[in-house]
Amino acid sequence: MIASLFYFLAFVSIFLAAMVVFAKNPIHSVLYLILTFFSIAGHYLLLNAQFLALVHIVVYAGAIMVLFLFVIMLLNLNAATEPVKSNMMRFAGAIAGGCLMLVLIAVLSKTNSMQPAHEANTQIGLIKNLGKVLYSEYNLPFEIASILFLIAMIGAVILAKKEPKTSI
């Protein structure tokens, strides 16, 4: 039952990811990408990583995709203005990506799939346990991430600011 749920979700996420790449209209791409993120959040739930699933939906579907949608609507992009690569380049790109997929699958499917050796602990994905690890063992990276966010915020504001019309 739970295995078939995994295969269904896997099929859905691969299909939606392919639709992101092959959709003509950028807005459709963004909507497919949001659905892809929800299916990946479903995978996290299946893995008993409830905190990750929650954060994934809040950060990706909530923050990042809204940013994407805003920028696409701000720039007034739609199917009519969509630049199209020449068929030759698209073909070459698809062949190269397909070769990468083939190599990765051929190599990684040879790994022997053992069952997990020890008894599964289904509690590690809960907020309580992750918080303990995050604020003790990974405290310094956590603080550095806050500095990264500050720098990114300043950078985004400076980049998106309108250039003042100075004549020197």
Binding site: I14, A17, A18, V20, V21, P26, F68, V71, I72, L77, E82, P83, V84, K85, M89, R90, A92, G93, A94, A96, G97, G98, L100, M101, L104
Partner: peptide, 14 residues
């Protein structure tokens, strides 16, 4: 790989 194909075949930066 789907992501790689997308980077290689599309021209829209977004």
């Amino acid at each position: 790989s789907i992501g790689v194909i997308g980077v290689l075949t599309r021209r829209n930066a977004i």
